[in-house]
């Protein structure tokens, strides 16, 4: 359900690049201005994000995307950073119940709207969500990198009534790329889970 808090999460890679340091590192880093990116920080902002039913109080640089807030500041690394440009869908989360791209959403703009990530999905008994089970049953992934985004989109596809045909599923899910090309199995998984996921 919840990923362990990773104190080392910030050290894995510097996704913002250049001198755009994350706030927690600013105190320890030596300022090294580069011509391309000013070394000074964006404005730090306090916010409370509602993620998977829990409130997270955070102080974040104004530039922080919802995806970086989830992955780097809450330890929720299920949502993946594929392209970071809104092209691949690996970062798809539910915002107010609708699938959106966390990489093109500023954390500061989320406000009180509820966010659901792959970590927030579960079945009635607390085990796997029917869509997660269907992805396993149908072999709907190979490397698995796109899978969290696929499953979030798939849940929205059914809930919003767009799983009526394979064609409709493919169209709704076309923003989730799978470079292993598991598309036929993904469609089969959505069709398997559809009767088990509530619409509305």
């Amino acid at each position: 359900m919840t990923a362990p808090a990773e104190s080392g999460g910030l050290e894995r890679r510097f996704l913002l690049g250049g001198g755009a340091m994350l706030p927690l590192l600013a105190g320890t880093a030596t300022a090294q201005p580069t011509p391309a990116t000013p070394a000074h920080e964006g404005r730090s902002m306090e916010m409370t994000l509602q993620v998977n039913g829990q409130a997270h109080r955070l102080a974040l640089d104004s530039r922080t995307t919802l995806l970086d807030a989830l992955r780097e500041h809450m330890g929720l690394t299920g949502s993946k950073k594929g392209c970071d440009q809104g092209q691949c869908g690996a970062c798809t989360v539910l915002l107010d119940g609708r699938p959106v791209l966390a990489c093109l959403t500023l954390a500061a703009g989320v406000g009180t709207r509820p966010v659901i990530t792959i970590e927030g999905l579960h079945g009635r008994d607390g085990g796997l969500h029917p869509m997660q089970q269907a992805f396993l049953d149908q072999d709907a992934f190979q490397c698995g990198y796109c899978t969290p985004g696929q499953i979030i989109s798939a849940v929205a596809c059914v809930r919003q009534g767009h799983a009526g045909s394979a064609e409709e599923i493919r169209e709704f899910m076309s923003g989730n790329l799978c470079r292993c090309a598991a598309y036929p199995q993904i469609v089969a998984a959505v069709q398997q889970a559809a009767p088990l996921v509530e619409q509305g």
């Binding site: 913002l16 755009a20 990116t37 000013p38 964006g42 404005r43 902002m45 104004s62």
Partner: peptide, 8 residues
């Protein structure tokens, strides 16, 4: 991204 201020 370069720094910016954010307001509603």
């Amino acid at each position: 991204m370069r720094p910016f201020s954010y307001d509603r």
